[in-house]
Design a protein around this nucleic acid. Sequence first.
DNA 1: CGTTAATTTGAGACCATTCAATTTCGGTGG
DNA 2: CCACCGAAATTGAATGGTCTCAAATTAACG
Lengths: 241, 241
Amino acid sequence: MSEFHHLEPLVRRWSKRCRFSPDDCDAVRALPYTRRTFGKDAYIVREGEHTTDCTLLLRGFAFRQKLLTDGDRQIISFHIPTEFVDLQNGLLGVADHNVQSLNHSEVASIPRGPLMSLADEHPNIRLAMWIDTLIDSSVFREWVVNVGRRDSRARIAHLLCELVLRLERTGACRDGMFDFPLTQEQLADATGLTAVHTNRTLQSLRRDNLIQLSNGILRVVDWEGLREVGDFDELYLHQQV
Amino acid sequence: MSEFHHLEPLVRRWSKRCRFSPDDCDAVRALPYTRRTFGKDAYIVREGEHTTDCTLLLRGFAFRQKLLTDGDRQIISFHIPTEFVDLQNGLLGVADHNVQSLNHSEVASIPRGPLMSLADEHPNIRLAMWIDTLIDSSVFREWVVNVGRRDSRARIAHLLCELVLRLERTGACRDGMFDFPLTQEQLADATGLTAVHTNRTLQSLRRDNLIQLSNGILRVVDWEGLREVGDFDELYLHQQV
DNA sequence: CGTTAATTTGAGACCATTCAATTTCGGTGG
DNA sequence: CCACCGAAATTGAATGGTCTCAAATTAACG
C-alpha cells in the first residue's frame, strides 16, 4: 500500500495541464506533508489566522465561507479531492476567510516554505499553482454573478451544473449521478437563500423533471434543461487549461 | 515631460510591496507597452476573446462585468489607476468576462509574452504579480458575501467603504471625499440591486447622515457609521501586503 | 438651449423571508 | 432489530424587502 503516494493525484492533475518533466513530478512527490482528518463541519482554516501550511484535499468535500457579524454565513466555494482549499495562503500572510470540512475529510497539510520554494525552482509547477489560483478566482467571479443576478431556481441549477462538471473530471460523477452530501442549509448558504426557500426551489426543480435528489444522491435527469434554467456556461471553469 | 515613465506608478506600488532591487525596477520600466484611451462604457476586454495583452490602468476607472443571457449585467469589480484589469489573462487563454471603461480612461497594453517572461526571470516581480491576482481573488470572495448575504443598505455601504480605502492609498481620496463617477445604474449592477432601489437606498444613507453625494462627488460624513452599516472589515483588501 | 442621460417618485405586485410546526431521515444504543 | 433521538427536510401562513412599470424631475453635455 505504500506504493501509492498521497500526492499522486495532484501530480497527475498538474502534469496534465503543464507538461511536467519527470523531474517536476518527482519534485512534487518529494514535498513534505502531514496527513490530517476532519469531521463534519470542522474548521480547517480560520479567518484571521497566520497560516503555516497549505491544505490539499485528499478525500471528502470542503467549503470556504465567511461569517457576518450577525451570524449569517455565506459559502464562497466548494472543494473536491485533488484541489487545494487555501493555496492563496502560501503568499498572503493572513487567512481572509474560513474553510470547513463538509463531511468526513482527509487532507495533506503542506508547509508553506517548501511549497513556495518548489514554485520558485520549478517554472512548470509554479505555473500549475498560479493557474489553480486563477481558476479559483474565475469561479468566485461567476459566483458573484450567480448570487447577484439570478433568481433562486437559476442559482441552484447553476451550482449543480458546476458541481457536475467538476466532479466528472475526477470520475466522482458518472451519467449525471453523484454523491451529494450538501445539506439544504449549506446549499442555501452557498446561494444566498434561506434553507426554507432552497427546499421549495429544489422541489420545483424536481417537479420539472430536471433533477432527482434523495438519500444523498443527486441525479441530473435533464442536463440541457438544467443548464438552461441555470444560465450555465462552463467557460469560467477553464477546464481545458 | 518624457522624464516621467507611464509604468512608474506600477513600479512604485510593486516595489513597495516586494522589496524590488534597482534591477527589478528597471526591468519593469523596460516592458514594451502601447498607450490606449477608452471612452465611457467602451469595452477593453470581451468575454471569449483570446487576449494578447494585459491592461494596466493609468487614468480613469474601469470595471469587470458579466452579462446574463437575458441581458442583465453583474459588475464584478471596479478598478483604479495602477491596477491591472485583466492580469489573469496573462496565463488563462480566454477571457471569461468583460471589462469596460467606466469613464474616459487611459491604459497601457502590455503584451503577454514579455510580461510573463519578466515574471519568469524576476522572482520579486513574479511575486508582486501573483499577489495582485490573489488580492483580486480575495475581493471577489468578499463580493460574493456582499451580494449574497447583505441587505441593500449594507451592500452599498460596504462597497463605498472598499472604494474609500483603495482610493486613499493612491491619494485619490482625502478626508473621505473623492470623485465618484459611478451612475446609480452601475452601482446597482455591482450590488445586485435595481437602479430604482439603489436610488432609494442612497437616500436612506444620506438621510442617516452617513454620506453626502452630489455632482459626482462623494463625501463620507460618518466613517464609523458607514463601516458599521456595511459590516465592513478591511482584512480582505490585504493592504499591508 | 435643446436633447439625452441620469435621478427621483409613486403604487402595486412578487419573490423570498420569517417564524413555527410537522414529518422524515439517519444514526445509535438497548 | 427495533426504539429512540437529533438533525434534516418539509409544509403553511403571514410579512417584508426588493422589483416592476411608468411618469416626472433634474442634471449633463454638445
